[in-house]
Design a protein around this nucleic acid. Structure first.
Length: 443
RNA sequence: GGAGGAGUGGCCGAGCGGCUGAAGGCGACGGUUUUGAAAACCGUUACACGGGAAACUGUGUCGGGGGUUCGAAUCCCUCCUCCUCCGCCA
C-alpha cells in the first residue's frame, strides 16, 4: 500500500512504476474516487458538527439547572418559550438526520471502492531492479561453487529417490492428487535434516525462531500483499474465512500488526519453520516432474522488520541474502544469484534477489530462494509502526527471504551427491541430523 | 457444543444517556531542585482521516458491525475475543 498523498502528487510516476511491473491498475480512477471521498467527508463533517453543537444546546435548554437555561430566564424568557426553542432546534435536527444517513451510506461504498483501488496500486520498484518484462530478463549477479561433472550417467532425483525407496510420488498422487508426494525413510529424515540445519543457523545468527499459524485470517493475507491479487494461489477454508499460507512470511510479518513499536526494538529478526500451501493455479503443465513444483512443502523463512530507512533496508537485504547463501554454501551446493527484473516483481516488492541452485536434471539453475524487500508497503497495510526519538511515527520496513525450502532443495542435494552405485552421500553438515551416517542406501 | 461472566487509553481502573477522547493511579517523557542520583513538585503523554503554508482546526474511534435517540463508552440487537463451569477430544 502506498500513501494516498504520495499517489495524488505523483500520478505519472505511479503509473510508470506500475507499467514497469506489468501490473494494471486504474490510477486515474483512484484519484477521482479519492477526490470524491474527501468532498464527501467535508460535507459530512460539517453536518455532524452541527448535530453535535445543536444537540448539546437542546440538552441545555431542557435542563433547568444549566447555565444556559438560567441565562435565558435572566433574559426574561418564559419556560414555555425556552421549551419552544428546544423543540424547534430538535425538530430541525431530526430533519437533518436522514440526510446524514444517506451521505453515510454512499460514503461507505465510496470508501470501499477507494480501498479496493488502493490495494491494486503496486509499490514502485527500486532503481536497482533492472527493467524487464518477465523472468527471462532477470540479471545474473554472480555464480558460486563448481557445477559437478559426472563420470557416469546421473539419475534425476525422482529415479534416484524411487530406486532408493525414499521418494514415493505415485502414492502421494494417489492420496492427494497431482503435485503431491511422500517422503519415507531417509527421504523424510533428509528433509527434516535440511530444515533443522537451516533453523539452527538462523538461531545462531540471532533470529528468534517461531512457530506460527499457517491458517490465517483474510486481513493477514491482505496485509502482507498476497490478497487480493494472489487469491487464486491460496487454498481457502471458506467456511471459516481462513486461508492457508503459502509461506511463513505471512504470519511472521503480520506478527506485530496494529502495534506501535519503539525504535529501540528494531530491527526485529524472526524465522519460522512452517508448512507452505500453494495451489499453483495457472501452472498446469509446468514443471510437472518430481519435487520441484508441488502443492505442499516445508520452509524455514527469515523476516526482518527494521526502521524506515532505505539504506538500512538495503543492508538488511544483503544480510538475509547472505544467510541463505551460507546455508547453500555449507551444504556445498553451487548456485547463482539473480537480480529480478521489474516485470517479475510482485505487488509490494521494491527489489528481489532469487537464488537458483544447480539442478542436474534440469540442466540449469532452479529457484530455491527468494529475498525481497518491501520498504513500507506491507507495514502500511499491516499498520506496523514505530515511534522515533522525537516521538514521530513511522511505518517500519519489512524484508524476507527463504532460508531453506524442502523438498525442493532435495533435488540438488540428491542429484549432486549421488554416486555411481545409486547411493547418495550425505553432505557433511547434515550428518549429525542423520544419525551420523555418511550415505543413503537402498531401503 | 451447553450455561454463566467480562471486553474502556502503554498498563491498572472510574464512568452506566448530554459539556467525557474519556476522572484517578501506574509507567514513560520534559522541566524545577540536587555535586550526581533518588525523592518531591510542575508539565506533557492515543490513532486515523479531512481543511490549512503554519499556528491550528473539524470529524471519527471506549472489542467489531448495526439500531434506538436531538444526543450513546453508557440503552437494544448481532458478531468476535477472553475467563469460569459442564460435555467432548488430543
Amino acid at each position: 500500500m502506498l500513501d494516498i498523498k504520495v499517489i495524488r502528487e505523483n500520478v505519472d510516476l505511479v503509473k510508470r512504476a506500475a507499467a514497469a511491473k506489468r501490473i494494471t491498475c486504474d490510477v486515474d480512477r483512484l484519484v477521482a474516487v479519492d477526490q470524491h471521498r474527501r468532498d464527501m467527508q467535508t460535507e459530512l463533517d460539517s453536518l455532524r458538527e452541527r448535530v453535535k453543537e445543536d444537540g448539546q444546546r437542546v440538552g441545555l435548554l431542557r435542563n433547568p439547572k444549566s447555565e444556559w437555561y438560567k441565562r435565558a430566564i435572566a433574559q426574561g424568557k418564559t419556560d414555555a418559550e425556552i421549551k419552544a426553542e428546544a423543540d424547534r432546534v430538535q425538530a430541525e435536527l431530526a430533519r437533518i438526520k436522514p440526510k446524514i444517513k444517506e451521505l453515510e451510506d454512499s460514503e461507505g461504498s465510496i470508501l470501499q471502492e477507494f480501498e479496493q483501488l488502493m490495494f491494486t496500486i503496486p509499490q514502485p520498484a527500486d532503481p536497482e531492479a533492472p527493467e524487464g518484462k518477465d523472468e527471462s530478463e532477470n540479471v545474473e549477479i554472480r555464480r558460486v561453487g563448481e557445477v559437478r561433472r559426472f563420470e557416469f550417467e546421473p539419475k534425476d532425483h525422482v529415479r534416484l529417490g524411487t530406486d532408493l525407496g525414499i521418494i514415493d510420488i505415485e502414492r502421494g498422487v494417489k492420496l492427494a492428487g497431482s503435485r503431491n508426494y511422500i517422503l519415507r525413510g531417509d527421504g523424510a529424515l533428509l528433509h527434516q535434516a535440511v530444515l533443522r540445519l537451516a533453523q539452527d543457523m538462523m538461531v545462531a545468527r540471532g533470529f528468534v525462531p517461531m512457530v506460527v499459524p499457517v491458517l490465517v485470517k483474510e486481513e493477514v493475507m491482505y496485509g502482507t500483499g498476497y490478497f487480493p491479487t494472489g487469491r487464486d494461489q491460496a487454498y481457502l477454508c471458506e467456511r471459516d474465512v481462513l486461508s492457508l499460507v503459502g509461506t511463513a512470511e505471512v504470519p511472521i510479518t503480520a506478527y506485530h500488526t496494529d502495534e506501535i513499536l519503539a525504535e529501540s526494538d528494531l530491527p526485529l529478526k524472526y524465522c519460522a519453520m512452517s508448512t507452505c500451501f500453494r495451489r499453483e493455479a495457472g501452472a498446469a503443465g509446468k514443471d510437472t516432474t518430481g519435487l520441484y513444483r508441488i502443492h505442499l512443502f516445508d520452509k524455514v523463512e527469515q523476516v526482518i522488520i527494521c526502521r524506515n530507512d532505505q539504506q538500512e533496508s538495503r543492508r538488511w537485504h544483503a544480510d538475509i541474502l547472505k544467510n541463505a547463501e551460507d546455508v547453500l554454501g555449507t551444504m556445498g551446493l553451487p548456485y547463482r544469484v539473480v537480480n529480478v527484473c521489474t516485470g517479475d516483481l510482485g505487488m509490494g516488492q521494491v527489489q528481489k534477489f532469487d537464488i537458483e541452485t544447480w539442478m542436474p536434471s534440469r540442466n540449469s539453475y532452479g529457484e530455491t530462494h527468494s529475498a525481497s524487500r518491501f520498504y513500507e508497503f506491507q507495514a502500511r497495510r499491516l499498520k506496523l509502526r514505530y515511534r522515533d526519538g522525537a516521538k514521530k511515527m513511522h511505518f517500519c520496513h519489512t524484508l524476507n527471504n527463504t532460508v531453506i525450502a524442502s523438498p525442493r532443495v532435495l533435488i540438488p542435494i540428491l542429484e549432486l551427491y549421488q554416486n555411481a552405485d545409486g547411493t547418495v552421500t550425505i553432505p557433511r553438515v547434515l550428518r549429525t541430523y542423520m544419525g551420523g551416517r555418511e550415505r543413503i542406501e537402498k531401503q
